[in-house]
Design a binder for these strands. Structure first.
Length: 140
RNA sequence: CAGCUGGACCGGACGGUCGCUCUCGGCGCUUCGGCGGCGAGGGAGGAAAGUCCGAACUCCGCAGAGCAGUGUGCCGGAUAACGUCCGGGAAGCCGGGUUCAAGCCCGGUUGACGGCUAGUGCCACAGAGAACAUACCGCCUGGUGCAUCUUCGGAUGCUCGGGGUAAGGGUGAAAAGGUGCGGUAAGAGCGCACCGCCGCGGCAGUAAUGCAGCGGGCAGGGCAAACCCCACACGGAGCAAGACCAAAUAGGGAGGGAUUCCGAGUUCGCUCGGAUCGUGCCGGCUCGGCGCGUCACAACCUCCGGGUAGGUCGCUUGAGCCCCGCAGUAAUGCGUGGCCCAGAGGAAUGACCGUCCUGCAGGAGCAAUCCCGCAGACAGAAUUCGGCUUACAGGUCCGGCUGCCAC
RNA sequence: GGGCCUGUGGUGUAACGGCAGCACGGAACCCCAUCAAGGUUACAGGUGCGGGUUCAAAUCCCGCCAGGUCCA
């Protein structure tokens, strides 16, 4: 029993509308190892200059959920934490207005550490756009 | 003032907007498990690191003792404990003084420092000889032969083999006490003095050890970060320890209930078909439908226990931090008072901006200063403490040495 | 959280505490009409780094660094 497939998406509290302030609560993140595995094995991939984005349409629930994988190859603990924090902030500020029932995993590259923050945000925005189009096409 | 060096400490500051996480308060929704939003407060380090030691804590194991294994290793103290810390000592190195020299004294510094007069093993090359030492060149001695000189006693030189010698040369990391004087054919602890060494008892000190004395001419080369011996310590695993709740699926255990007849087949265990009875499920009940049925198994129903995903606890009040006082050379201990200081779990402490601070480059200015740009280390809690080790921009304070300037 | 292993020319590997070798590759030359193969020659290292023990260290000891691997 977990809250992810059950209550939170059904309730729909966590969907930020255009007027709402940008948030990034726990229910909007991927929190379980099994979810990551499913997205890696069954999901589709989108390659960008500074990251690779995996995404998978979810059967249950409605909200978009996102997680980050930053492995040991990318640097020490300080650098990896910095990457995750910058990604999280970018995702928070570029959260798509339309609600998508999709799980997303982002694998950053080392350049995320030194990249201009605005540029990182643009790339996240473009990735969300690609995912939105892909999901809408499959739904029809 | 500058450079080098030792120790202690700090590790950019303040504010705004939007986020994350925990706690508390009250609110809304709820399938009563939670979810959402509002307000207030808390939110990385000196090394959080490496995981090299030591503990706490938890589970497992355990009559007692020994072996094996691992670690530690001068002495005393500190401590919960340690391979850590503090103090002391031996020893090495550097500088100065003194001495013919060895050595001794003073100052600084280093400091894994039990035992090779228990055993075993190793010591390449070079060298005559390397552990029951050794005679290559030398030195001394007497002998044979030859040459020269001769005052005809012999002397000198060379060759050969004999003996003595451990001074000198040479080899080596190391050649079996050192220096000086005496002594001698030449030499040698052969003798003496001083130093070193060994033994004995004495004194000082808790002890390591030191000091002086007497005796012995000197045995006992080095290596135990070689095997080893001696003394001491150590049960094993680790918060993914461990405790509790516990889905789905599979499996385990216990219990409950009830039959007879006819026909056919038969390897004589039983099987199949029909009727009847009992029972379980569907159903409010009957009929009906789907199953099962008396040795055992299976099936049905009820109950129990283990346990995975997942969740909760462990989880932060502790050998705790700060101030002051006392004891101690110090490590540290004791006492009064005050304080509560991160607890995540795909893992929170961030993003953007402003002002200031520090450093560096550029520009303006006689200068104080101003403008603009760049940079601000090493690094991120993961059960918790005590250490060690390693990384580290810049800065503050205290001490030592050297140089320059002033008095 | 804990255990174990490795590090030597460019590459792969040897070396009872006593001169750091071997093979491949690269370079030059020879051979050949040419290429390959073959032959000869020298080069390339202070054994991951820093200390210590020893007369002497790749080897023994201590501390770091990098990499690999196993268990929970």
């Amino acid at each position: 029993m977990n809250c992810v497939s059950g209550l939170a998406p059904n309730g729909g509290f966590n969907l930020p509308g255009p007027g709402k302030r940008a948030r990034f609560a726990a229910s909007m993140r991927l929190l379980r190892h099994a979810d990551f595995e499913r997205v890696y094995k069954q999901g589709r991939r989108h390659f960008a200059a500074h990251m690779t984005v995996f995404y998978l349409r979810r059967e249950q629930g409605e909200g978009l959920r996102i997680g980050f994988t930053v492995g040991r190859l990318l640097g020490g603990a300080v650098d990896r934490n910095r990457m995750k924090r910058r990604l999280r902030e970018s995702v928070r500020l570029h959260w798509p207005a339309v609600s998508l029932p999709v799980d997303v995993v982002v694998n950053p590259k080392k350049s995320v550490l030194k990249l201009e923050f605005a540029e990182l945000g643009d790339e996240i925005g473009r990735a969300f756009e690609v995912i939105r189009k892909s999901v809408e096409r499959r739904t029809k």
